[in-house]
Measured scan of single mutants.
Amino acid sequence: IMNCCEQCGEYLPSKGAGNNVLVIDGQQKRFCCQSCVSEYKQVG
């Protein structure tokens, strides 16, 4: 599985992206930055 930001689609290095993760309905959603997390929450 490719690690990509759920919001902008930016490729995420394998281990460096652990900071910005949401778990929604048991699914891990990865993000490249906190602003993408916030945007995803607003839209979702």
Rank of each mutant, 00 (worst) to 15 (best):
I1A: 11
I1P: 06
I1S: 07
I1N: 14
I1Y: 02
I1R: 05
M2D: 11
M2E: 14
M2H: 05
M2K: 14
M2C: 04
M2W: 01
M2R: 07
M2I: 08
M2P: 03
M2T: 10
M2S: 13
N3D: 11
N3S: 08
N3K: 05
N3F: 11
N3W: 02
N3L: 05
N3Y: 00
N3M: 06
N3R: 01
N3G: 08
N3T: 05
C4H: 13
C4G: 09
C4D: 12
C4A: 07
C4R: 12
C4T: 12
C4Y: 02
C4F: 02
C4N: 15
C4W: 05
C4P: 08
C4Q: 14
C5K: 03
C5L: 00
C5E: 03
C5F: 00
C5V: 00
C5I: 00
C5M: 00
C5W: 00
C5D: 01
C5R: 01
E6L: 06
E6V: 05
E6P: 05
E6G: 07
E6M: 13
E6Q: 08
E6H: 05
Q7T: 08
Q7M: 07
Q7W: 06
Q7A: 09
Q7K: 08
Q7D: 02
Q7S: 11
Q7R: 12
Q7P: 01
Q7E: 05
Q7G: 08
C8R: 01
C8F: 00
C8E: 04
C8V: 00
C8W: 00
C8H: 05
C8P: 00
C8M: 00
C8Y: 04
C8I: 00
C8S: 03
C8G: 03
C8L: 00
G9V: 01
G9K: 01
G9Y: 14
G9R: 02
G9T: 12
G9C: 07
E10P: 03
E10H: 06
E10F: 00
E10R: 09
E10Y: 07
E10S: 03
E10T: 00
E10D: 06
E10I: 01
E10V: 00
Y11W: 05
Y11F: 08
Y11G: 15
Y11N: 15
Y11R: 15
Y11H: 15
Y11D: 15
Y11S: 15
Y11L: 13
Y11Q: 15
L12W: 02
L12P: 08
L12F: 03
L12Y: 02
L12A: 05
L12C: 03
L12R: 01
L12T: 04
L12K: 04
L12N: 02
L12E: 12
L12D: 07
P13Q: 10
P13L: 02
P13R: 01
P13H: 06
P13N: 01
P13C: 14
P13E: 07
P13W: 01
P13M: 01
P13T: 09
S14P: 15
S14V: 11
S14W: 02
S14Y: 00
S14T: 09
S14G: 09
K15P: 15
K15A: 14
K15G: 14
K15T: 14
K15R: 03
K15S: 14
K15E: 15
G16H: 05
G16M: 12
G16T: 15
G16L: 06
G16K: 00
G16R: 01
G16A: 10
G16E: 14
G16W: 04
A17V: 06
A17M: 08
A17T: 04
A17E: 14
A17W: 02
A17P: 04
A17Q: 10
A17G: 09
G18T: 03
G18V: 05
G18W: 06
G18R: 02
G18Q: 00
G18P: 12
G18M: 06
G18L: 02
G18S: 03
G18D: 15
N19D: 00
N19L: 11
N19H: 07
N19F: 11
N19T: 09
N19Q: 09
N19W: 06
N19C: 10
N19S: 12
N19R: 05
N20Q: 11
N20C: 12
N20G: 08
N20H: 14
N20E: 14
N20S: 10
N20R: 04
V21E: 14
V21A: 10
V21S: 07
V21D: 12
V21R: 05
V21Q: 07
V21C: 04
V21I: 00
L22M: 01
L22C: 05
L22R: 08
L22N: 07
L22E: 12
L22W: 06
L22Q: 11
L22F: 07
L22V: 12
V23C: 07
V23K: 11
V23I: 13
V23G: 09
V23E: 15
V23R: 12
V23T: 14
V23Q: 15
I24G: 10
I24R: 10
I24Y: 09
I24D: 11
I24T: 15
I24A: 12
I24P: 08
D25C: 05
D25W: 01
D25E: 09
D25R: 06
D25S: 04
D25T: 10
D25Y: 00
D25P: 02
D25H: 14
D25V: 01
D25Q: 03
G26K: 05
G26E: 10
G26P: 04
G26C: 10
G26T: 04
G26W: 03
G26M: 03
G26R: 05
Q27M: 09
Q27V: 08
Q27G: 11
Q27F: 07
Q28A: 08
Q28K: 04
Q28L: 03
Q28P: 10
Q28I: 11
Q28E: 13
Q28V: 07
Q28N: 04
Q28M: 08
Q28H: 14
Q28D: 15
Q28G: 05
K29S: 04
K29P: 01
K29F: 07
K29Q: 04
K29L: 10
K29N: 02
K29I: 05
K29E: 05
K29Y: 11
K29M: 12
R30W: 12
R30C: 15
R30A: 14
R30N: 14
R30K: 15
R30G: 13
R30H: 02
F31S: 05
F31W: 01
F31T: 05
F31M: 04
F31E: 09
F31D: 07
F31V: 03
F31Y: 08
F31G: 06
C32M: 01
C32A: 03
C32L: 02
C32Y: 01
C32P: 02
C32N: 01
C32F: 01
C32E: 03
C33M: 06
C33Y: 03
C33A: 12
C33R: 08
C33E: 12
C33S: 13
C33F: 01
C33D: 13
C33L: 03
Q34M: 13
Q34T: 11
Q34Y: 01
Q34K: 06
Q34V: 13
Q34E: 14
Q34H: 12
Q34G: 12
S35K: 14
S35R: 13
S35P: 10
S35L: 08
S35Y: 10
S35W: 08
S35D: 15
S35A: 10
S35H: 09
S35M: 10
S35Q: 10
S35F: 06
C36R: 03
C36K: 08
C36T: 09
C36G: 04
C36F: 01
C36D: 05
C36N: 04
C36S: 02
C36Q: 06
C36I: 14
C36V: 02
V37D: 06
V37G: 06
V37E: 14
V37I: 00
S38R: 10
S38A: 13
S38K: 11
S38Y: 00
S38E: 13
S38H: 07
S38L: 11
E39T: 14
E39L: 05
E39P: 04
E39Q: 08
E39K: 15
E39V: 13
E39S: 13
E39A: 14
E39W: 02
E39R: 13
E39D: 00
Y40I: 05
Y40P: 15
Y40S: 14
Y40T: 14
Y40A: 13
Y40F: 03
Y40H: 00
Y40V: 09
K41W: 03
K41A: 09
K41Y: 02
K41V: 06
K41I: 01
K41E: 05
Q42C: 11
Q42H: 10
Q42P: 07
Q42G: 13
Q42K: 11
Q42V: 14
Q42W: 03
Q42T: 12
V43T: 11
V43D: 08
V43Q: 11
V43S: 07
V43W: 04
V43M: 06
V43F: 03
G44T: 08
G44W: 06
